[in-house]
Design a protein around this nucleic acid. Structure first.
Lengths: 165, 165
DNA sequence: TATTGTTATACTCTATAACTATA
DNA sequence: TATAGTTATAGAGTATAACAATA
């Protein structure tokens, strides 16, 4: 029997797997709700929500790709779908001629608003029915620093080219 | 401006979005690690891990499909891939001739073991570097009842046929 | 020369429905 | 008749690489 390099910490393992499992089940349910109530996928909902929370409802493509964890081409694809339906518009960035700015439209905001009640209902039923207000606060307190830490080195959608040897 | 139907609870909303965001970023990082260290996708890793934790390392196909949140055909597909590489085997269930039992092989267990150290390293770096042991315990305590509640009505991979009118 | 975004392409995954076999 | 699992099929989503335009 090989000497274990380090004992697996069961406490952490349990926390990790609980997190993965809960979020997986939650996301599955959410995707069905978004599809039914707004003909939206989860990814497109995230894009819209992030734009809605951005100042002036707009963001640079690459920044948004990083935020949603995507390749740039993936975002181009999703943005194309959203634009075709009138939920977002793309325009050249004013400061950088190479850049493109994506902005949520009134229709986009309206759709997010329309979908939110049902969305919250699902989240309430699955997640918060088991958590008190204090629990929710605790959860946020635990996860916020984690998120900030993860965001410090976001998965870059535009990978820097490897230095030539 | 329309009257809001009900005030959105910001505490819950924050907790929910923090959870979604953290798990999304975590999963993205995990997928890369599993791919690099074991040529595994996250889904296939979950299947193997669940089998490994099962008594005798085996489970019924439909039960496993429910657990991983999948259609039965999706599991058949993934099981086929895993079986082709010798990480699992499928056999007819002894008690129910219709059923199929999927079991993890020694090679499957070995691969999970081989992948776990790197796996934990990623989780430690992204998640637990920001959480104390107590925090981890708290997180588990919060999420375990949530998971149990969600599992009470699992998304049935085999949806019961709707009653005819 | 590096970076932004798009396009072309190839591939993986997923679900639905039809089908077979057993309960 | 209902359930377990597979198969056929079709569609959506993703990433990589090549490309055009700007910095």
């Amino acid at each position: 029997m090989t000497e274990p390099t380090h004992a697996v910490d069961p406490v952490r393992l349990r926390a990790y797997f609980a997190l993965i499992e809960v979020s997986g089940l939650l996301r599955h349910a959410i995707e069905q709700q978004l599809q039914a109530d707004g003909d939206l996928t989860f990814v497109r909902f995230q894009i819209l929500r992030r734009l809605q929370l951005s100042p002036a409802g707009r963001q640079r493509m690459t920044d948004l790709a990083d935020a949603i964890v995507f390749s740039r081409s993936g975002l181009t694809y999703q943005a194309g779908l959203l634009e075709k339906v009138g939920l977002v518009v793309r325009n050249p960035s004013p400061d950088d001629e190479r850049g493109v700015t994506i902005a949520i439209t009134d229709a986009g905001r309206a759709l997010v608003d329309a979908v939110m009640p049902g969305h919250e209902a699902v989240v309430d039923r699955l997640l918060f029915s088991q958590l008190s207000q204090d629990d929710a606060r605790t959860l946020t307190a635990l996860l916020t620093p984690v998120r900030d830490h993860m965001r410090e080195a976001p998965p870059r959608s535009a990978r820097p080219r490897r230095a030539r040897s």
